[in-house]
Design a protein around this nucleic acid. Structure first.
Lengths: 238, 238
DNA sequence: CACGATCGTGAATGCCGTTAACTGCTAACG
DNA sequence: CGTTAGCAGTTAACGGCATTCACGATCGTG
């Protein structure tokens, strides 16, 4: 059962997260220091150690929450569309991913940038890792749904290089779905192009050539649509 | 003319770079501090201010040098192949880019990760920016060469969305080449897929599914080859 | 030789994460 | 109700960080 103390504690943890998040947004990742968070909350830095074992642990908690928020955001976009219009759903989710990334570049950097910051953890089951896994699975389940309702051509198992086939099979087992390996392959190819392209844009690595990469992104969506046999759906807004 | 003092100074600058580079490789970007560099050189941190205006400036200098090295590395790969075999050249350069990235993940992170580190600079002409520009142009010139020697189908200007077409035209003017906009478009599409995919791999964002993304990379090369009408060339090593 | 530029030092400032000792408060128990 | 254990916060301190400043040494040039 949850005592009053527990509830107070949970509220404080939430306040710490929100404060950290606000500082992240307003001043960037390097400004998310224990002292800054505590200062904003009218406390001193060592007090935060009552709630998190270290600065890195706090960051990882924050990353987990942001993953969860992004997941919800994408599921929301998927639900805001006629439930059987898989093409509209695919385009809506992909565009929402990009829109969220552009609207939350600092958060996106924390989630999908180089992981070398204090958030690196390999062994134990991490809260952030768990949320990331759920995020990945959300995307995968959209794909699963798509494949089931509107099958698209995928390479046969024999046409996939053996080394890759083994890895796909292992991944398929990991996530516990029953799908042709070709579907898993196409999923990964699409995800790599989507996340790769969005990362380049958010991190500013397309600025050398493009002021506004949106039409480029739409072109990519059209190409992914061809792979998935989905008709292109122009963006709704604007 | 270069006095002896100038030469000594240049040698010190080089030693600082090399020390910083070594620390970057061995201990990661967060360990590249002025104190650490100075310590390794048997000096104290403030002395480094004689050579660089700030920690960020030193980092940007380092980034520039790494860009230059990567550029040379790619040009080397291009030259190590029969000069008229454009398909082999394309595959060699793309594979060398990935190989270099995997062999130098810390450096790659500095060059192509989220730029929010002390290296951010927008206004003045930065040494690092200059080197990055040269790097981009090297890649572009390979493409130019490819297009001239072995034209591939590209979309007509009228088939490119107007907004994108304008940006491509501006970029074409920037780099001062005379090419159909469709070639510029295909160049960017290929570059985005190449860098996007390699970034995901180097930053560990494919580990959720793949132990060894190499076959996935080769698949991407094959697809780029289709776009560019280049026959697939299997990797030479192994 | 003497002068001035250049290169390096040590001390100091104000950040940072983290630890340790200490002080209240408060909830639970006899 | 009084006592007590644990929780949440404090201050002080350590070592490390970038950066600034005043100072001294050194060296090439006039």
């Amino acid at each position: 059962m949850a005592t009053r103390r527990d509830r107070v504690r949970a509220a404080t943890v939430r306040e710490i997260s929100e404060t950290a998040r606000r500082i992240l947004i307003e001043q960037g990742p390097d400004a998310v220091t224990l002292r800054a968070i505590a200062r904003e909350m009218g406390m001193t830095a060592p007090a935060l150690y009552r709630y998190f074992g270290s600065h890195g642990e706090l960051l990882r908690h924050l990353i987990g929450e942001i993953f969860t928020e992004l997941t919800a955001e994408l599921m929301g976009a998927a639900k805001a569309v006629p439930p059987d219009d898989m093409s509209a759903k695919f385009h809506a989710v992909a565009r929402q991913f990009r829109r969220w990334a552009l609207a939350h570049p600092r958060e996106y950097g924390l989630l999908f940038g180089v992981p070398v910051r204090g958030a690196g953890h390999r062994g134990e089951t991490d809260f952030a890792q768990e949320c990331a896994r759920r995020f990945g699975w959300t995307f995968m389940s959209l794909f699963l749904d798509l494949w089931q309702k509107r099958p698209f051509p995928v390479p046969a198992d024999e046409d996939i290089p053996a080394h890759l086939r083994d890895q796909l099979a292992r991944y398929r087992t990991d996530i516990g779905v029953s799908l042709p390996l070709g579907v898993v392959l196409q999923f990964l190819k699409c995800w790599i192009r989507l996340q790769g392209g969005v990362s380049l844009e958010v991190f500013g690595h397309l600025e050398f050539a493009l002021d506004d990469p949106e039409p480029m992104f739409e072109l990519m969506l059209a190409e992914l649509g061809e792979i998935l046999h989905l008709p292109y759906v122009p963006p709704s807004g604007s």
